[in-house]
Amino acid sequence: MEQQFIDYIKDRFGFTKEDFGGLVFIADEKRVYVTTEEVALEENLPGKTHSYGIVAGRIQRDGRTIKPTTNFLQVFGSRAKKNVFDVNDEEKELFIRGTCIETDSELEKGYVIVRWRNHILGCGFLKDGILQSQIPQSRIMKV
């Protein structure tokens, strides 16, 4: 799944190999993590390892789609070259509270990186003229 995720984010957001220099992607049944080479190459890690670095993607129920996480995009999203959705002040407030936004954006359908000024807010899903906030309930700002 690691390579599938890397291929997807390169294709979707225009990331390059250099954007992830010194980093390694590791997958388990549910998630793809991104961590440093130093961590991934450490041979003497204790046996009961739970997870690595940060969660970069979550494997969806269909077993094929991997959704990039807001946390991953907040760290790496500024390096993306396409499918970046810019929001204005009003839309930003809606997005970080988990609200959908109507749009006439011509970006491709699918996951987008949502940006306000120079801040990467997180992951959105664009479909049928609606930008759906993909920020998890545990992360959204309270009204």
Binding site: L23, V34, T35, T36, E38, V39, E42, L45, P46, K48, T49, H50, S51, Y52, G53, I54, V55, T69, N71, Q74, V75, R139
Partner: peptide, 12 residues
């Protein structure tokens, strides 16, 4: 760890 962008960690 996720929210704060901690890349060099392993959770045990």
């Amino acid at each position: 760890n996720d929210k704060n962008g901690v890349l060099n960690s392993v959770i045990t």
